[in-house]
């Protein structure tokens, strides 16, 4: 077993193990960083997310020997550079910092981002007030089917005239 004190890696049986302090790096940053390395190594996470997350890495190429297909994969992988777990672990730490920065920037810009999105949505959706005004403008207000626009005199004088006419006819 080797122990690199500067980064505190432990390597045993093609397994590399190291701990991440979750008071410095959030669990979501660990997830995101791990996600980016899934194509290079096998990763299993353990530990307590409140204190320390243990990252266990395993080389992918060391298992390519079981079947004919795997043999072909092995031949292809031999042409490539061998996976250096320590190097990948170092890159993992760098990626953690990168993800942490992304989170911080995302938090800082959250309000500005929400404002921009809300403005974009507001402009994209037609304004209700504008639509109502347009409807009112399109209506023909000069039509008066219920007779609302007539004055009291107009309505009542017409009624009296018609009554008078009827009375005079009766008197004759």
């Amino acid at each position: 077993m080797t122990d690199n004190k500067s980064f505190r890696f432990k390597i045993k049986d093609n397994l590399l193990e190291f701990k991440i302090n979750t008071k410095i790096y959030s669990l979501s940053a660990v997830y995101q960083a791990a996600y980016l390395f899934l194509d290079k190594v096998y990763i299993l996470l353990d530990g307590d997310p409140q204190k320390e997350v243990v990252v266990i890495m395993k080389e992918k190429s060391s298992f390519a020997s079981a079947s004919a297909k795997a043999m072909a994969d092995k031949k292809a992988s031999e042409d490539k550079e061998p996976v250096d777990l320590e190097k990948i672990a170092g890159e993992f730490y760098n990626e953690l910092l990168n993800q942490l920065l992304r989170e911080k920037v995302s938090q800082t810009n959250a309000k500005i981002r929400e404002y921009i999105v809300s403005q974009a949505l507001y402009n994209a959706v037609p304004n209700e007030v504008d639509e109502l005004l347009k409807e009112v403008e399109e209506e023909d207000w000069q039509e008066d089917p219920l007779g609302i626009a007539k004055t009291w005199e107009e309505q009542n004088l017409e009624g009296k005239k018609s009554k008078k006419g009827k009375m005079s006819k009766k008197g004759k």
Binding site: Y35, I43, F63
Partner: peptide
């Protein structure tokens, strides 16, 4: 499955981790 016997558990672990991200 014989063809994936040596890598299945590790690939499975990676897949679960991928779903967590």
């Amino acid at each position: 499955d014989k063809e994936v016997k040596n890598i299945l558990s590790d690939e499975f672990a990676n897949y679960v981790l991928g779903l967590m991200s």
